[in-house]
Design a protein around this nucleic acid. Structure first.
Lengths: 204, 204
DNA sequence: CAGCAATTATTGAACGGTCGGTGAATAACT
DNA sequence: AGTTATTCACCGACCGTTCAATAATTGCTG
């Protein structure tokens, strides 16, 4: 039995959170107990409570981490694309892409959404996150509109619509996917957005 | 202390399921234990296990009940409306209505959706349910199309889209609602459907 | 740089509580 | 009398949590 090296909080805390995340994928919110997390990480259960004072705190910390990762994503930055048409398409493509939808395991994010129904703190964190995304899209839409790429009346409504459809994509993949790849339905979703903002896809 | 009357399985089982449902709303999937359900119904915990052999069976039973209620809803029958335009609008109005969205408590249905990520049985039940709805809508679309009310190419895709948007509505209400009534965003969703099927709303 | 104290990381043992579940006892109905 | 409804008394397992013991690391001091 090899003696375990000591690590400091800076290293341990993220390690535990990642362990929690993985146990969450396998066992779900109900099954992800402290001892299971400890077992998965091959450490003592008490160590988890040493760093995170309580189970609830652990949960909140993971949510915080996920949200901050979500926000710090560079995936929505397309300033490097000169052609505005192409830039707009790149944005839409990303929002309805498989890659984007899998920045977080869908089971885990679904679980936390569910938590938000009975935990006001979690609810407000997610509300804030989605509004952040909505506003980000909204700003982009206004700019594209100003440059004549698209035509919209109410940018907030459109941004709301896009975020909603983006989330719906996850739902569709899980419950209505016919074995078709993710992209099949994503195409339909994108078309509907293009129609809504009166964007003519320049077929090449 | 008044002595409790005996009831038979036919009465008790639904009673327990309803109790489970209510505890589920208050406590969530993790908190809805057998003893809490028993307490809520003012009966002995063992009685629940007498009727439903296990906790898992209880859960599956409630899901089965919810799905069957969902399917037996008369809410989607609009044959009595003669005018086909009005009938089409009535269908769309219903699908994006508050009433329809609240046939089941959103927290509860969200919880079961979450379960479906780790329980293949539950997953297939919900997949089947949503495909049933999708097909129902699909058939309606084909008929409206045949009668020249709408114009569509791929009815299944459109039906998929409508179901997805309908579910997205729930998401939107929970995470992006600005205090506006449910109907505000529902209107946007409906408009997008109308556009997609080339339906001109006859403004009166 | 040595040595020792303070701090931190990690383990260990034990807690009260609740969980789902069992099997037998009792009460009520048929 | 036999079946069914209901309660009762337990069970082992696991839950999150606490607090003390021990091992490693850090930091101060002379």
């Amino acid at each position: 039995m090899q003696r375990r090296k000591n690590q400091n909080a800076e290293l341990r805390k993220p390690e535990i959170l990642e362990g929690y995340y993985h146990v969450l994928i396998d066992e779900g919110l109900e099954g992800a107990s402290i001892s299971k997390i400890a077992n998965h990480l091959d450490i003592h259960p008490s160590l988890i409570l040493h760093y995170f004072k309580s189970k609830d705190n652990l949960k909140q910390s993971l949510i915080g981490l996920m949200v901050s990762k979500f926000k710090s994503r560079h995936l929505l930055k397309f300033d490097h694309i000169e052609d505005l048409d192409k830039r707009f398409e790149a944005l839409i493509d990303m929002l309805f892409s498989y890659e984007w939808s899998r920045t977080v395991d869908p089971g885990v994010h679904f679980g936390f959404y569910y938590q938000s129904f009975r935990d006001d703190n979690i609810a407000s964190i997610f509300r804030e996150m989605f509004r952040w995304l909505r506003d980000h899209i909204c700003e982009a839409l206004v700019e594209f509109h100003a440059n004549g790429i698209i035509q919209i009346k109410d940018p907030i409504k459109i941004a709301d619509y896009i975020v909603t459809l983006m989330e719906g994509l996850e739902f569709h993949a899980h419950f209505l996917g016919h074995g078709d790849p993710f992209e099949t339905f994503a195409e339909t979703a994108k078309q509907s957005v293009y129609t809504l903002v009166k964007y003519k896809l320049p077929r090449e």
